[in-house]
Design a binder for these strands. Sequence first.
DNA 1: CTGAAAGCGCTAACAG
DNA 2: CTGTTAGCGCTTTCAG
Lengths: 320, 320
Amino acid sequence: MDISTASRALNGRIGPRSKVRERVLEAARRLNYRPNPLGRALVLGRTRTIGLLVSDIRNPFMTDLARAVEETAHQAGFDLLLCNSGLDRDKQMQYFSALLDKRVGGLILNFVPPLDRAQHQQIAASGIPVVLLSPAPRGSPLSTVCCENLRGGELVGEYLIRLGHRRLAHLTGSLAHPNFAARWRGFRRTVRTLAPECQLVLLRGMHDFQGGYAMAQGLLRHHPHVTGVFAANDAIAFGALAAFHAAGVKIPDDVSLVGFDDVELASIAHPPLTTVHQPVAEIGRAAVEIISRHWHNALSAPVHLRFSVSLVERDSCRAI
Amino acid sequence: MDISTASRALNGRIGPRSKVRERVLEAARRLNYRPNPLGRALVLGRTRTIGLLVSDIRNPFMTDLARAVEETAHQAGFDLLLCNSGLDRDKQMQYFSALLDKRVGGLILNFVPPLDRAQHQQIAASGIPVVLLSPAPRGSPLSTVCCENLRGGELVGEYLIRLGHRRLAHLTGSLAHPNFAARWRGFRRTVRTLAPECQLVLLRGMHDFQGGYAMAQGLLRHHPHVTGVFAANDAIAFGALAAFHAAGVKIPDDVSLVGFDDVELASIAHPPLTTVHQPVAEIGRAAVEIISRHWHNALSAPVHLRFSVSLVERDSCRAI
DNA sequence: CTGAAAGCGCTAACAG
DNA sequence: CTGTTAGCGCTTTCAG
């Protein structure tokens, strides 16, 4: 018996009832044999590693996502390479190439700023399964998994209007990012429809804690009359909370604040944050599943998933 | 010219002024050549990947650490494999073995529960550089990077006593973990010394948000008279905060609360959390540096680093 | 079903 | 300084 037979046995390419198979498995166990993934990867041209490329893992939504992704990936026999690209487009592409060089088995990307159609094609041309965490342009060759961003924005608009707020602000990141763009579109459209007289200011900055802090400061300085604030994600909302707190502005007494994501920490904020819930664990699971299926050639066309959202009311808003 | 020459040129094992070197580099650029790390890893027997093994990346301290580690690692030409082992000892060792199989270039471990002397030896026997995020038993063959846990506990003890609290509680994880053990030891010792009459209750549970929540609930039920609480990390403190909030207990009016870690989010809690600061970015950098040095054979003996801590006063405590 | 042989892309030991 | 050769550990034709 030689090693090719052993290889076949270990990989199940041999009759399951075969005597040889048993002997190989037995010997492997006895010798405590552990296959070297590098040898395998070299000949196969790909690894069982999933790359997760985000701008900053400290964004609590990304943290929760990473956890879910790692867990699912591990169960499916993959491991997780974590990359923080920041907001720099070049650095993003540089990371991307490095991951390709490493022959990752799949990629989960949250590109900020996002790519154009040509870049989508280019990425797809790499041949490795890619899942985008945002909606793609129509006909994109890449898989996408995201939530109903537009609907989320609408929910917040309806809610704040219903509470009687008429001077609103939206604190967001780059509107070039499809997720943020959709949240804003849904919010604005709803507000415009429900209360056309409503005053609506848009502030853009970093989509993280710091950015939220800075934007809230700017808001207090230049638009002190605003009573309802929609932060495009919970990280921004947390930053805003801190800034309001520091400035002596009471939430929800002086200003009502709504976030987006419903990260675990939203409930510990001061006060507990009203926010749009998206099912992060399911999103992570779905992304891994798509990659795993592609890996096993059980999937060829890109798939597009969109999870529904809901508003979870806590204590950061009140009627006016 | 053949490929071994090219290999040497690319790896700088050739006179920097050599004509050949120039030609190789030029050709590589022109052909857009990208070395395949798998081929290299296979022959070298190791990769430029660092494994980070923690119980849960959602612990905000670990999130901050992961960010720092990834950044430093990337600069040093390494990438980061993230593993969440949970609290299960077997799963930990299983992850550990899997990482060895993958020929990682180094490992950063936050084992919970921790290993005994024999296991330290066993891990060291694997031959790959390992950095523990906790103090090791004397004479451990593994490198360690941590903070002055004992001193941190003392600081909190001094502080709460100085504020006049005499009914104290400590909310922590497994005391088998050296970090938690040291924090508790420092705290208790100081309290016992400064105010021997002081009542001191110890609660153990999960060292995360949920655990903090549960422990605070238990505290309210069984020890409602406690006025000063020291949480062994910020995640526990956040959970406790939520539980207190839910129960209508005012912080700091009814209870003073101190955390440990000083994660970014500590400032947004309600109220902003008084906590022990440890320099997470420096810790992450140091861990990567140790591994990188080992990788380049510029280091053979294990190194032990301990960073200093300080108490940052915010608004979660008051004098009694 | 099994063995022999080739080769994935790279580095290193050894001669020239 | 350069080329030749061998081999890292694995999978996969291709014959037997």
